[in-house]
Design a protein around this nucleic acid. Structure first.
Length: 668
DNA sequence: ATTAGGG
DNA sequence: CCCTAAT
């Protein structure tokens, strides 16, 4: 049972530039609520909330608050650790630099998440704007998503809006709560900072060109010191800096796990912090300007190291690397982003094409589960190009095809022990995925996304097709065909039947393109006539990646379903008309010689279904409608050749009887 | 390898 | 589309 707590935090310590008093007094205090799990509030949540609030107040110098600290603890949530320092730490800790780096980043989240937020004293949390911290080599600073995906900045936090998340290739995910809630942008989302600046500037006048900001997150203490009764929600309040915060002024002397000993404050973009541990009872009024003194990063680092050496951290150290797979191939980790929704870092499929993608998923909050998905395999990609196609063009074709597949036509499914987990609202814990799971049990699937990969051929019939086209979320009477991206046909060098002229061939190809489910697969520049991205293995999965190895051998894979197009049907009918129903090999050679995926068995089967289709009522037919004219020809040809066959049968049998009778007579 | 037919 | 018996 998760309790929602109601906490009230006051932010104080704004470095507010001169603002007309009138304007400032207009908004002394503002507050908003953020529904947060008080007990398990994630550092990321907190951070994002604070940062977002700040920004929504009009702060514009930087979109993100990249670091925050629990006093006395290293609390960078940012890869701002210089390489030099990394190596120092490495020596100190005797660990690999990476591990150390991650540990540093884990530190805060561990503290925060291992302990209820309410256990953290109001003055123990500090936020520092990222500008004030030495910037890592993270290009794309700003609110663009780039800094979220830069490899060097994996753990940096920023403001996450649906927009920049999307553009970074990441997607907000939510482990619990209703879908509605998940989709809702949180309070911290800041989309149009420029706009906001304008409006907020005038109305609140709270913050303008502040280039450094410091927050204190305070636990809610009413002035009397009594604990708030209602703690159902986390409440965040922004308090103007020249107004002492009632929430933060209380000097708690309670002994906490995390004794503040270090304060960080920023003035004009420079990191300042006391060189000595400050008192446990910081005066909120002081700390803004007066009490802070300049301190460089090393200074801070020294303190941290000192603290580290002096005591054990009140949290259990975690294994940071228990990657599941030790596959040797693949591309290095992809984009990372932090999801404030659940406090996890998630790397997502980017749009960069590669047949083998490696995806890292980090869960850094408590109960962390670290997953590494190595090498998503795009199972089958059917491409047919002409022999005269250049290698470069082929590359481009493949690239675009992969792009088309990865670029949104896919969704990811999760398999646990072979069973598909469909409930997106379940947490990993509820599902049974934990870090000590055998990772073999966990698998992912790439599936066609029915909402993105549109297609008439997705639709079993006309009716649902229209629904699909008119409605983004169609309710189809039939289950969508699982085999989505498929299209196709190819350039074929038919042993052209009499009236399958060049014109017909062209129309055939074009009509195939028209029926292409994914328009993105049409590649104008490419020389390929057609692309056939081919799902494989599972009915509704393009790929199943059980992390270890694919069980099903390739040979046992069911072929991809590729419905016949009208033009194919026409070619088939024409060939059968000429050759009859008993010579499927000839039919194949004549009309489908270059269509490698159509065997004579396929053609025979298709003819069978065509006959059946022609006999049933149009209402009962499914799939791409076959022109009645063709069906009529099917029936006609079928009748004719059946008759011929019967005749043939009669003949041969009569011949047989003749001979047998003859032999009986002549050979008594 | 093909054909024919059931599933 | 698959499977397979029968050619």
């Amino acid at each position: 049972m998760v309790l929602q707590k109601r906490l009230e935090y006051g932010f104080s310590g704004y470095q507010v530039p001169p603002i007309p008093r009138a304007a400032r007094s207009a908004r002394r205090r503002r507050s908003f609520e953020s529904k947060t799990n008080g007990n398990q509030m994630y550092a990321f949540d907190l951070l994002a909330t604070v940062a977002g609030k700040l920004l929504s107040e009009g702060e514009s110098s930087s979109p993100s608050v990249d670091s925050f600290s629990l006093k006395g603890q290293l609390a960078l949530v940012q890869d701002s650790v210089g390489r030099q320092e990394k190596s120092e730490e490495k020596l100190l800790e005797g660990k690999s630099g990476d591990q150390d780096f991650y540990e540093r980043n884990f530190l805060f989240t561990d503290i925060v998440t291992d302990n209820p937020i309410s256990d953290i004293r109001s003055d123990e949390l500090e936020f520092a704007q990222n500008d004030s911290i030495s910037k890592p080599n993270c290009p794309g600073k700003g609110d663009s998503a780039e800094h979220l995906v830069n490899d060097d900045c994996k753990l940096r936090l920023g403001i996450f809006t649906p927009a920049n998340l999307e553009s970074s290739g990441c997607r907000l995910s939510c482990n619990s709560g209703s879908d509605e809630e998940c989709r809702k942008p949180r309070n911290f989302s800041v989309t149009n900072r420029a706009d906001m600046l304008d409006s907020q500037h005038l109305t609140s006048g709270l913050v303008s060109s502040v280039d450094s900001v410091k927050f204190l997150i305070c636990r809610d203490h009413s002035p009397s010191g009594s604990a708030p009764v209602n703690r159902e929600n986390v409440k965040l309040a922004i308090i103007d800096d020249d107004e002492s915060s009632p929430a933060c002024t209380e000097s708690s002397t309670r002994t906490k796990k995390f004794r503040p000993s270090l304060r960080v404050s920023n003035i004009h973009g420079q990191k300042l912090l006391s060189s000595k541990p400050c008192k446990a009872t910081p005066n909120v009024k002081d700390h803004d300007r007066a009490v802070t003194e300049r301190c460089n990063y090393l200074n801070r680092k020294r303190i941290i190291k000192h603290q580290r050496s002096l005591r054990d951290y009140p949290f259990k150290k975690r294994k940071f690397y228990d990657f599941v797979s030790n596959s040797d191939e693949g591309i290095c980790c992809d984009r990372m982003c932090a999801s404030p929704e659940n406090g996890t870092n998630i790397s997502a499929l980017g749009s960069r094409p590669s047949l083998q993608r490696e995806v890292l998923i980090w869960h850094v909050a408590f109960g962390s589960v670290k997953l590494k998905i190595k090498s998503f395999r795009v199972p089958e990609l059917f491409i047919e190009v002409q022999e005269t196609t250049t290698i470069g063009s082929l590359k481009k074709t493949v690239l675009e095809a992969v792009n088309a597949i990865l670029g949104g036509g896919l969704r990811v499914g999760v398999l646990l022990q072979g069973k598909k987990i469909r409930d997106d609202t379940q947490t990993l814990l509820q599902t049974g995925i934990s870090h000590d799971n055998k990772m073999d049990a966990l698998g992912f699937t790439l599936e066609p996304n029915p909402h993105i990969a549109p297609s008439s051929q997705l639709c079993p019939d006309d009716h649902s097709c229209q629904l699909l086209h008119n409605n983004p979320r169609p309710v189809t009477r039939y289950p969508l065909s699982p085999n989505v991206p498929r299209t196709a046909i190819r350039d074929r060098n038919l042993d052209t039947p009499p009236d399958l002229s060049e014109n017909n061939l062209n129309s055939l190809v074009e009509s195939d393109h028209d029926s292409a489910p994914d328009s993105s697969l049409k590649i104008p520049g490419a020389q390929s006539k057609a692309l056939v991205p081919v799902p494989s293995i599972e009915r509704d999965a393009l790929a199943v990646v059980p992390l270890r190895k694919c069980k099903r051998s390739d040979s046992s894979q069911r072929r991809i379903r590729r419905p016949f197009t009208v033009t194919e049907v026409e070619a088939l009918v024409q060939a059968v008309e000429k050759l009859g129903t008993g010579r499927w090999r000839d039919v194949k050679l004549r009309a489908f010689d270059s269509a490698k995926h159509r065997t004579y068995v396929d053609l025979k089967d298709k003819w069978k279904t065509l006959v059946h289709t022609a006999r049933i009522s149009p209402q009962q037919r499914r799939g791409e409608p076959v022109p009645q004219e063709l069906l009529d020809r099917v029936l006609t040809a079928h009748a004719y050749w059946s008759q011929q066959q019967a005749k043939q049968h009669l003949k041969s049998s009569s011949i047989l009887t003749f001979f047998s009778e003859n032999s009986r007579c002549t050979n008594p």
